[in-house]
Design a binder for these strands. Structure first.
Length: 414
RNA sequence: GUGGCUGUAGCUCAGUUGGUUAGAGCGCCUGGUUGUGAUCCAGGAGGCCGUGGGUUCAAAUCCCAUCAGCCACCCCA
């Protein structure tokens, strides 16, 4: 039992858990299609450089969390830690430049070598969307509105907060970065050890530090809004206007910083208190520089990713399942007739469970256990009359039904 | 990567100051006469006590290591 363990941070999805993932992805998909997005599936691994170049050499994901290995041809490959890079790569290598805008959604496993905890696994699943080729703020609005719609149909929108921020354009970002470095360098002796490190690697990160001392310093830190270019400010204003128009509530949070280098302008997170420390349920932003960084034509984009495990934890209730009709064949002839009828009923759209072995008692017991609605008893007595016994498992009522009429008799259980 | 807590049957857990055949509930299987499920009764299967070392006459119990889970930091979905 201890010999065969699942790999650390992986998790088997069984029964209702698997069903709930499918249901969530299905609901998300339905809404994405309503927004005119098309499905897309990219490989689960890519050449390592695909992620290295796009995520930035300083990001934690690249520096310590990637599952990288060499294949038999000597290529360095990496299990995808997120979905956007793969889509961008497909966009470039597939020559999709001529079909802008590209609107797609995907879902599947992602891999990050992190220490597991609540809401965080090494293999987890994301549903994500990308809207590539539209530089207008309407794209940001639409994509965020879709996210809100999805959370709403899952019944958890009210438990989340949309936190919104802008990282500005490259110029704003750079000016602000310099101002931050100047400010924090002056007080670096008061910074936490971690933030001193961030000061060199990624100063923006200091903004979302949880350290109390750091937070105190933030009060007097330069404010991003003072360093934004006019264009960047106008863009952000348009996004906020749009969200109001569409009726999506948000909260400005100047401390939201995306972990990945390719983001600019809009950055947002839907967060919740319900999940402990890993409160981000869906997050994304605009990545206008990404595709160019990867060697493609300069092309803007916006998108987000949502963690299915986290969503599933919030939508506790298992999705409803159609109750089955259980066929209990007794004796050789009965079993054969049950098998034949199973096909007839299934083709008629009914959910059918066959009892594979054992007698009547066991058959009913099994029907009870799987919460079947009806048991159909097929024994020699019935066969002689050309009927079957239909037993309603809730009321215990039984009736004889001619075999030829069975399909219609059970129509209500479709 | 760092820290805290935990690891006994399929599941939830007991297991006294180390002491002989490791327990319960639920679940599972069989039976309680002929073809009727959730109740009831009787029986049964199922444990390298996470793994590897050590201390001891004796370890599920003590020590060390290791693996895994949970929670937090970090980071993020």
């Amino acid at each position: 039992m201890a010999k065969l363990q699942p790999v650390r941070g992986t998790h088997d999805l069984i029964g209702d858990e698997a069903r709930s993932h499918l249901a969530i992805a299905g609901a998300a998909r339905e809404i994405a299609e309503r927004y005119g997005f098309a499905p897309m599936a990219t490989p689960i691994f890519e050449f390592t450089e695909v992620f290295q170049r796009t995520l930035g050499d300083t990001s934690d994901i690249v520096t310590k969390e990637m599952y990288t290995f060499e294949d038999k041809g000597g290529n360095s490959l990496t299990l995808r830690p997120e979905g956007t890079a793969g889509v961008a790569r497909a966009f470039i290598s597939g020559g999709l430049q001529n079909e802008l805008p590209l609107k797609c959604f995907y879902h599947g496993p992602m891999f990050r070598h992190e220490r597991p905890q609540k809401g965080r696994q090494r293999q987890f699943h994301q549903f994500g969307v990308e809207l590539i080729g539209v530089a207008e703020p309407t794209a940001d609005v639409e994509v965020i509105a879709m996210a809100a719609d999805i959370l709403d149909t899952l019944g958890i929108l009210s438990e989340t907060t949309l936190e919104l921020n802008t990282l500005g354009d490259a110029q704003s970002k750079e000016q602000y970065r310099e101002a931050l470095v100047a400010y924090f360098s002056g007080v670096s002796d008061k910074l936490s050890e971690e933030s001193r490190d961030r000061l060199v690697r990624n100063p923006l990160r200091i903004l979302d530090s949880k350290d109390a001392g750091d937070r105190a310093l933030l009060a007097d830190a330069p404010r991003f809004d003072d360093y934004m270019t006019e264009e960047a400010a106008a863009f952000f204003a348009a996004v906020q206007d749009g969200l109001e128009t569409v009726g999506v509530a948000f909260k400005r949070n100047p401390h939201i910083v995306r972990g990945l280098d390719y983001y600019s302008h809009t950055a947002f997170e839907f967060t919740t208190e319900a999940l402990g420390a890993q409160g981000t349920v869906l997050a994304g932003g605009r990545y206008d520089g990404l595709i160019e960084t990867m060697g493609g034509p300069r092309t803007p984009g916006v998108g987000w990713g949502a963690g299915l495990e986290r969503l599933a934890m919030m939508t506790d209730a298992a999705p409803a399942v159609t109750r089955a009709i259980t066929l209990v064949g007794l004796g050789e002839a009965g079993e054969r007739e049950a098998l034949r009828l199973s096909g007839v009923l299934r083709h008629a759209g009914l959910t059918v469970e066959l009892v594979y072995k054992g007698g009547l008692k066991r058959g009913l017991k099994r029907a009870d256990r799987i919460n079947a609605a009806v048991a159909v008893l097929i024994g020699d007595d019935e066969l002689e009359r050309g009927t079957v016994t239909v037993r309603n498992l809730d009321t215990g009522e039984q009736s004889d039904v001619a075999i030829a009429d069975l399909k219609d008799h059970l129509a209500a259980y479709r």
